[in-house]
């Protein structure tokens, strides 16, 4: 049976110990069931990661009941916290041996020495031209930090949460850094007279 939000909050805050413990046990069970379902095909989400994530979420939720504003179902709010814990841990362990420089270095030769012979010669030369301009834009319009984050994100597929951790900042700040990088690239490319249409045509 699904509990309404008021029931969750009331029970979790209750002085009646049995009532409170039952609600905690219910929530724990639902979080575990949800996490097991969501990550069943992901080998990186080990049983330990999942159990720790559920446990931590349970602690955080019960300690922060007053910060729940009732804009969603209570379970949705709690599950969001648990999911975030799983990803945070998977990303941390998965990327712990790869530095930001290593990740961004992967991207450089890929963009510099690009060639794909499955395209016609005219298309290839147009692509090469755009890529050259893109590489120029990356080098001339981005700061070192923007460039590193961009290559680590797009080419090495490093999660921005990890980029943030390695830069000693938060995810929101990295998103903003990348936003500014994208903005600068666009401006540079537009001034090199490469339009969105040119780009789409060359790469379709």
């Amino acid at each position: 049976m699904e509990r309404a939000n008021e029931n969750w909050i009331g029970s979790l805050k209750s002085d009646d110990r049995l009532k409170r413990d039952t609600a905690i046990a219910d929530l724990h069970m639902l979080l575990l069931r949800g996490l097991h379902g969501a990550f069943k095909t992901n080998p990186c989400a080990t049983p330990t990661i999942i159990e720790d994530a559920a446990q931590e979420a349970l602690l955080r939720v019960t300690a922060n009941l007053d910060s729940f504003r009732g804009e969603s179902k209570f379970l949705t709010w709690a599950m969001k916290i648990a999911i975030r814990n799983v990803y945070s841990e998977m990303r941390r362990t998965g990327w712990k041996d790869i530095s930001l420089d290593q990740a961004s270095d992967v991207g450089k030769p890929l963009i510099e020495n690009f060639a794909d012979d499955s395209y016609s010669p005219e298309k290839l030369s147009r692509q090469a031209e755009i890529i050259e301009k893109l590489w120029q834009a990356i080098n001339e319009s981005l700061t070192e930090k923007q460039k590193t984050a961009l290559l680590a994100d797009f080419v090495a597929n490093m999660p921005i949460e990890e980029i943030a951790r390695k830069m000693g900042t938060n995810r929101n700040a990295v998103y903003k850094l990348l936003y500014d990088a994208r903005h600068n690239l666009r401006k540079h490319l537009m001034s090199a007279e490469i339009t969105f249409d040119d780009m789409t045509k060359a790469f379709s």
């Binding site: 890929l110 963009i111 797009f154 080419v155 998103y175 903003k176 690239l185 666009r186 490319l189 790469f203």
Partner: peptide, 23 residues
């Protein structure tokens, strides 16, 4: 390799004047 390049170009050209962050 083309995929990476396309994604960078796409994300640059599809930038919106106002985007919210991860928070």
């Amino acid at each position: 390799e083309l995929e990476y390049i396309k994604q960078i170009l796409d994300s640059a050209y599809n930038i919106r004047p106002h985007e919210v962050g991860c928070d």
